[in-house]
Structure formats: C-alpha cells, structure tokens
Design a protein around this nucleic acid. Structure first.
Lengths: 245, 245
DNA sequence: TTTGCCTTAAGTGTTGACAGTTTGTCGGAG
DNA sequence: CTCCGACAAACTGTCAACACTTAAGGCAAA
C-alpha cells in the first residue's frame, strides 16, 4: 500500500513527510519502539531518501525519535519519565504564554475568545461523544501571546507529541466539562489583567492534565519501562565555552 | 582560506558544520542579514551540499536563519522584537528549570554549587577583565533540574543564539558583580527549598539581563529595523486538527 | 558446549548530478 | 525616464549511487 498523501500546504516533500510519518505513527501504523529505516520509508512513500532524512531529523528534533550516529532511528518509547519531561516543558511554556496573553490581548480579543469558548462548550456538551473539537482553547491562547518562538515550540513540537501520547493512552472525555470550567477561569483572570493568577491557573490546569495522562498511562498496556528518548543537542555544561549571565 | 575545522566530537559532518557555521557567524565571518547559499558554503568547507543542508536546517530550527520554500537562507536580523521573543522563551524555561532544581537537587549538590560559585566569584573579581568564565551558573543549574527537554532547548538552541546577540551588542563586564550576587540569592532560595521564590528570583535576574541587552542593542550600530526571523513549523491555530486539553 | 573471531549483510553518511523555481538583468515600449 | 516582459543565471529541491560503519550470524578453536 502507498501511504503517500498529497498535502499541498507543505511546499517540500520533507515537510509533507514529516506530517505523514507523524500521522502514520499517530494512526498506529508504526508501533512505539519500532525501528524505522530511511530506505524502507523512502520505498513506502515512493520518494528518495533525501526528504525522508530531513523528516526523520525533524522527528528527532521533537524528541519522538531516538538515534545514535550510525544506528537506525527508533521511535521513542513513552514511559513516565518522558511524559514528565514533556509536561515540565509544557508547563513552563504555556504558563509564560498565558501570562503574556494577559498582558498583550486587547479587550476585543478576550471577548471574542470568551464567546467562542462558550459556543464550543454548548456544542460539545450537547453531544458528548465524538466531538470534532476543532476549537482549541490552548492553541488560540498561545497565538494571542504573540511569541513566535513559544508558539513554534508548543504548536510545532510539543502538541504533536501530546496528541500521540493521548492517543496511545486513551482519551478521557469525562474530563471535558471540568476542562471547560478551568479554561473559563483562566480567561476570566486574563480579562481582569491578572497575569500571575492566569499563569498559576494555567499551570494547575496543565498539572491536572499531566496527572490524568499519567494514570491513563499506568493502566495502558503499551506503557513499557524502557529507556526514554535521548534528546539531541543537549551538551554537558562543561563542554560549552561560555554562557549567558 | 579553508574554514573547515575538524571537531571529532561530532560524528557526522552535518553536526560539525552546524558548529562551524555557528562559529563563523559568531566570529563575524558572516554578517547578519547576509545570504548564505548551500553551494557556496559547501565549496567553502570542502564538503558536499548534503551536510550543509542539514546544518542549515538546524540553524533554521534554532531561529537563526530565515528561509522560504525556494528562497535562499538569510541569517536572521536581530531587532528588538527578536530579542524580546528570545527572552520570553528563556524566562519561561529557566524559571521552570530553577523551580525544578529547587525540588530535585540534593543538599550535597547545592553545597557543591555554592562553593563553586564562591570560588568563581573570587577568581573573576580578582582580575576583572578577560575572565575565562568556564564556570557557568546557569548551565549547571539547568543540568540539576534534570529535564532533558528543557536542557536541550536551552543549552542546544537558546544559548548559542544568546552568545551571538551578546557578541554583537557588546559584553558588559561591569554587571558581573551584580550577577554573582543574584546567583547567590537564587541558590539560597533553592537551599531553603523555596521553589516559588527561586523561580521568581531567576525570572527577575533574566529580566535584568534582557534590559541590559536591550540598551546595549539600542546603542549598537548593527541593530537594524528589519523583519525578524520567521520561525519554522508554527502552524496557525485553525490549521491543526486537534489539541491537548 | 561455549567463546572468540571473521564474514556478510543491512543501513547510514556522503556525494555528484538533474529538474523546477526564483530572482536579477537586459531590451524595448509607452 | 519609467515600466513591463522575456531571457538567463543562480539556487534550492530531489534523486540515485558510492563509501563507510555497525551489528548480526556463522564457523572454528578451546
């Protein structure tokens, strides 16, 4: 079968492959811990090894793929340590983004977001299962923080991983109502321009999601006590010539 | 001249080229805003275009390079907006790392770090100029946070950029004494296991560094009002299928 | 039977070449 | 003199092939 799907929103094959491979892993086409070779993927997608190489490099950059110099790439196992690490980063980034949004959003944007949140809540709670959920509070809020770097790290790297983890550990729709309430509280803090409170609420909100995912991961059969993903480009402190003050 | 320098710590040419090009920019061999073509660099370093391509892709991942689908890569200009964005990310990451360190460091590590800090202070203040400064408080502290992802983002991506900005805007050795004092306060908060205080202190510390760099950038002749680096892989909120709750 | 070395195969790192796109330039029309 | 369009050069994206590394399997010796 040819898993190649044309996505014209990506101008280069490498970009498209990144999404395709991500989708392939997401759909369970590749199991966690499986080894993915460049030549194999190249044949499977009907392209050369060049673009595949770029896509894998980017997967490696996300931390989804473990790779040593000449060894073949393995997609990372998701143990508790990796999830913890992922959420540490997420708390840091989204907490800050939330505080920034409290400072930088104008009243009109807040009102609009509030209305959209309420609309989505009614729709989702109307038919609780199978919600399309294309309204994403977090992504929208991050956009309003107007920090390209944080947006890129979150939306481009962390969230695809999170979707993967949630997929593997199973979703929990019963938390949806609580999540809406927490989102509303965060937005209210932003409306009152209380950046510290907004950040604190967001951090707590994400901590709940972490605990949620943790318990789901414990109950999941795919959780395995395997060494976590080794991230690239994390030089030891002593190996760097100088650092910022 | 052949700028190629063998760095056997990198197993692949792409990795070595990443550092070499970074060093080349750092040393002023390439001016900000200059266009760097793959073929040119390949000839200059005596390798093929493949590794150069990988290195540029990684430079682009850091946000040091702007690139559109078929256009040639430009090294990003450093205007106020870019610095602001960089420091927003840094505050988020290092603040969290500091809080984590306050939780995860054991007493022995704290004592050791404290002693090393004092030792470095005496040495640096002994001869104020031309300090080797291979003791880096921030890097060490981040290591102690034991979060691979945050360490990678900070040590692998943000710090090289920061060094660049500092280089271009000029260092300010007179702040060194103050910095030591702030470092000491942060460590004291960690020793008393006050994660919130430690994070707050670290955030303030970094904010000072941001202000410092800003004024230096304003006075610097290289600061230019040019569109900042467009970061890769920051999809708009509406273009993503679903996000985390 | 077990241990060590050697052979072999798979896979990554790297290279040079080809195709499509963009950008700068030159000539001509208005 | 300015503006527009076509041509050409340069560059990026992609591909197929070669060189080198690693790991696994077999074979021989203890």
């Amino acid at each position: 079968m040819d898993g190649r799907e044309d996505d014209d929103s990506a101008r280069s094959l490498g970009e498209a492959l990144f999404r395709d491979i991500l989708a392939l892993i997401h759909s369970g086409g590749i199991a966690p811990g499986a080894t993915l070779g460049e030549a194999t993927l190249a044949r499977q997608f009907g392209v050369s090894r060049g673009p595949v190489r770029e896509a894998i490099r980017r997967l490696q950059g996300i931390g989804l793929v473990t790779r040593e110099p000449f060894a073949r790439a393995r997609i990372a196992l998701l143990d508790r340590t990796a999830v913890d690490d992922l959420f540490d980063m997420r708390v840091a980034l989204e907490g800050r983004a939330c505080a920034l949004a409290a400072t930088r959003m104008d009243d009109h944007a807040i009102t609009t977001l509030l209305a959209a949140l309420e609309r989505a809540r009614r729709r989702d709670l109307g038919d609780p299962d199978v919600p399309p959920d294309d309204f994403d509070f977090h992504l929208l809020l991050i956009d309003h923080a107007r920090s390209p770097r944080i947006s890129a790290a979150l939306g481009g790297d962390l969230y695809p991983l999170l979707r993967l983890y949630r997929r593997w550990s199973g979703a929990r729709p019963e938390r949806k109502g609580v999540a809406y309430q927490e989102h509303w509280q965060i937005l209210r803090a932003i409306r009152s321009r209380d950046a510290d409170l907004a950040r604190s609420l967001m951090e707590q909100h994400i901590e709940k999601a972490r605990a949620n995912l943790m318990t789901a991961l414990d109950a999941s059969p795919t959780s395995q006590p395997v060494p976590a993903a080794r991230l690239p480009a994390a030089p030891a402190a002593s190996s760097l010539p100088a650092g910022p003050a």
